[in-house]
Nucleic acid binder design. Structure first.
Length: 193
DNA sequence: GGAACGATTGAT
DNA sequence: TCAATCGTTCCT
């Protein structure tokens, strides 16, 4: 079956411009022999000029993928137990990325349920660390090009602007006023209502 | 070498 | 409201 990969040339821009464009696209992983998929419903932008961004103080060992080519993954480990998955944006050398905060499960829900140890479909992928667990995303996918297995993004119809909500980002202490969180209005799988 | 903390989650 | 839990960053 031919895959219709998401066009990563759309990601050669500032993170907050790319972010809403990623809504509605399909995230797919085929790890440990199990394929799961979901529609991206919530994202947050992190720019190099943004004090809330890992890349704000320049390149380090952890954040170096953010300075890499657009369209690759930036996966980081946090709170001693969770992974978060980002899609790198901007030109090579520019440190920015879009955090994927939630997806709506569309394939492999039984697999995600086992991985998450949960029963409610609504709670499988409604958070950045939750979806990483459901999709089996970890450091092995760090810097992975998202136009190839085992983790990739496929194209899908754009979400109308009237259905995209702009809001403040969650869990940050700096630059809180920026409306760089985007989610699909009335979608049941967004992390917080 | 050491301390402080985090783009979270789930239980209390 | 709070504990879990450890890699990364930054300071000494």
């Amino acid at each position: 079956m031919k895959r219709r990969y998401f066009d990563i040339s759309k990601l050669s821009d500032l993170a907050y411009k790319c972010a809403p464009y990623l809504l509605g696209k399909t995230l797919i992983s085929c790890i440990d022999g199990e394929q799961v998929a979901g529609m991206i419903v919530e994202v947050e932008a992190y720019e190099q000029t943004d004090p809330a961004s890992h890349s704000y103080n320049g390149q380090t060992v952890r954040n170096s993928p953010m300075f890499g080519p657009p369209g690759q993954a930036y996966v980081y480990f946090t709170y001693g137990m969770h992974y978060c998955f980002n899609i790198v944006t901007g030109e090579l050398g520019h440190g920015s990325a879009v955090l994927i905060r939630a997806v709506e499960p569309t394939q492999g829900i039984d697999i995600m349920t086992v991985r998450r140890g949960k029963k409610l479909t609504q709670e499988l992928t409604n958070g950045p660390a939750k979806l990483c667990q459901a999709f089996a995303i970890n450091k092995e996918q760090n810097e992975h090009n998202l136009q190839s297995p085992p983790l990739w993004i496929e194209d899908a119809p754009a979400i109308p602007n009237t259905k995209i909500v702009h809001a403040t980002r969650i869990g940050i202490k700096e630059n809180q006023q920026k409306l760089w969180r985007y989610y699909i209005k009335d979608n049941a799988y967004v992390s917080k209502k």
